[in-house]
């Protein structure tokens, strides 16, 4: 592929992805705003795979050090984002009717 085909492919992908993000969230009830923000916070945890590649292909000690920090941060984004979202959504599981117990 030439550079310009690559560029236009990228533009198509970005456009469709942006549209997807918009559509998925456009009809969300307000009650789900917090979990959804938390959920999308988890999804950008995909940064972890980029950080892994950055560290994995790093050659100098400086690159390795920065890559290492990036993987640590990315991994925290993933697990923390997952647990927070899971905990928030857990509350929606009781379908409302059960009387709440004292925590």
């Amino acid at each position: 592929m030439t550079d310009s085909t690559m560029l236009w492919t990228a533009v198509y992908i970005v456009m469709l992805a942006a549209f997807t993000g918009y559509v998925v969230i456009s009809r969300v009830p307000a009650i789900l705003h917090t979990p959804l923000m938390s959920g999308s916070n988890f999804i950008h945890g995909i940064v972890l795979v980029g950080a892994m590649v950055a560290l994995g292909l790093a050659t100098t000690p400086l690159e390795q050090a920065i890559g290492f920090v990036a993987v640590v941060l990315g991994a925290a984004n993933v697990t923390g984002g997952y647990v927070v979202t899971e905990r928030i959504l857990q509350m929606f599981d009781r379908s409302g009717k059960k009387p709440g117990k004292e925590a």
């Binding site: 972890l48 795979v49 892994m52 590649v53 560290l55 994995g56 292909l57 790093a58 390795q64 890559g67 290492f68 920090v69 993987v71 640590v72 941060l73 990315g74 991994a75 925290a76 984004n77 993933v78 697990t79 923390g80 984002g81 997952y82 647990v83 927070v84 905990r87």
Partner: peptide, 28 residues
């Protein structure tokens, strides 16, 4: 992602994931 061609520093990657992932999990 571990199958990325030419990936080195695998031990470092694993350690970093354990540290970051562990912190994220426990704190959350």
């Amino acid at each position: 992602t571990f199958f990325t061609p030419g990936l080195t520093n695998l031990a470092l990657i694993a350690i970093a994931i354990v540290i970051g992932g562990g912190f994220g999990y426990l704190a959350a």
